[in-house]
């Protein structure tokens, strides 16, 4: 527990670093929010109007003051006001994030359900035809862009079943669980394919190593069947690299999946970030990126806790 506490203490430090980085990075991009927001109409603004708009959003101050103000807000839980949406950034995140989280979780479940058994299966049949087939599929899965999978899925659904996934309005899980699942299953599949392929490959490699370990031989010497030896003795040892990979992929997915969200017209975090950057919506970019960074830290912490749960050497510290 002491360990978790120490990790949590590091969160503010990392967040502070990220906040400086994103604050500066977005301002280094040429262009300004007011021009981006009003487009050609911004040419019609008088200098006075332009100044008062800038003053309203706090854009007239120098960077240090802007940053200091933003940081002051952050400490009180205020992420600022979005220029394009005219809403608090925290409210936008609260609206968009549940979809992204659900999509990420669903993709990971799909990836693990397909990838783990496939990887273990391939490892136990190393260099035999069935192993080669799994490896070829994994290679294809990993090298196919997710929008191709997405478009294929839509094509199959529309041509084969004469229907289309519900698009546009997002159906929350709490409102209509089945409708929600029907809406998300295809995008999750599109995101989960490459993820599953990566899990397959890493699970296969880890299992191959583990199967030649002495303790696997010991388990066999006790008279246990192949199935028991693999699931009880080998797999728990092979899970660590799988957890590492899943953590990283999951962290990325929590940052939104722009293309897949776009194809399925889903209002997730990815599209918000894209729009915010295009619109020079400083407060929104900063707020969302900070939120994504926080999620990454949280996922990494969970991954470390998962290591400890899986491996007692990590739990008690190697002697």
């Amino acid at each position: 527990m002491n360990y978790v506490l120490r990790r949590l203490l590091m969160f503010p430090l990392v967040m502070l670093g990220v906040s400086v980085f994103v604050f500066v990075a977005i301002r280094l991009v040429p262009g300004d929010a007011i021009t981006a927001m009003l487009g050609t109409e911004s040419g019609l603004l008088t200098p006075a109007q332009r100044e008062s708009l800038a003053a309203y959003f706090g854009l007239d101050q120098n960077w240090a003051v802007q940053y200091w103000r933003w940081l002051g807000g952050l400490v009180q839980g205020d992420l600022g006001l979005s220029v394009t949406y005219g809403q608090p950034v925290s409210q936008i995140i609260a609206e968009r994030f549940p979809l992204t989280l659900e999509l990420a979780l669903l993709s990971m479940v799909i990836a693990l359900l397909i990838g783990l058994p496939a990887g273990v299966f391939a490892a136990t049949r190393a260099e035999r035809p069935s192993d080669l087939i799994v490896r070829v599929f994994a290679m294809i899965g990993q090298s196919t862009p997710n929008f191709v999978v997405a478009l294929l899925a839509i094509y199959v659904l529309s041509v084969g079943f004469g229907t289309l996934p519900t698009m546009g309005r997002f159906v929350p899980l709490t409102e209509d669980p089945l409708g929600n699942l029907a809406q998300l299953i295809l995008p999750a599949l599109a995101l989960g394919t490459a993820f599953a392929a990566a899990v397959t490959r890493i699970a296969r490699a880890a299992m191959l190593d583990i199967l030649s370990e002495d303790y696997v031989r010991t388990a066999r010497s006790k008279g246990f069947s192949q199935g028991y030896v693999i699931w009880r003795h080998a797999l728990p040892n092979a899970l660590i690299p799988v957890v590492t990979l899943s953590g990283v992929e999951f962290g990325y997915l929590l940052g939104g999946a722009v293309i897949v969200e776009q194809i399925f017209a889903l209002p997730g975090v990815g599209r918000v970030v894209l729009d915010a950057i295009l619109q020079r919506d400083y407060a929104l970019v900063q707020g969302v990126v900070l939120f994504i960074a926080f999620n990454f830290l949280l996922v990494n912490l969970l991954v470390d806790l998962a290591y400890a749960a899986l491996d007692p050497r990590i739990r008690y510290g190697a002697s």
Binding site: Y215, T218, R220, K222, G223, P236, R313
Partner: peptide, 25 residues
């Protein structure tokens, strides 16, 4: 062989440090 191993023929290995599964009690 699975019926013989463990029940009829037991085995002790060279490296006790690696012959036991590190993640199981």
């Amino acid at each position: 062989m699975q019926r013989l191993r463990g029940r009829e023929i037991g085995m002790i290995f060279q490296e006790p440090m690696t012959a036991l599964n590190p993640v199981l009690k």
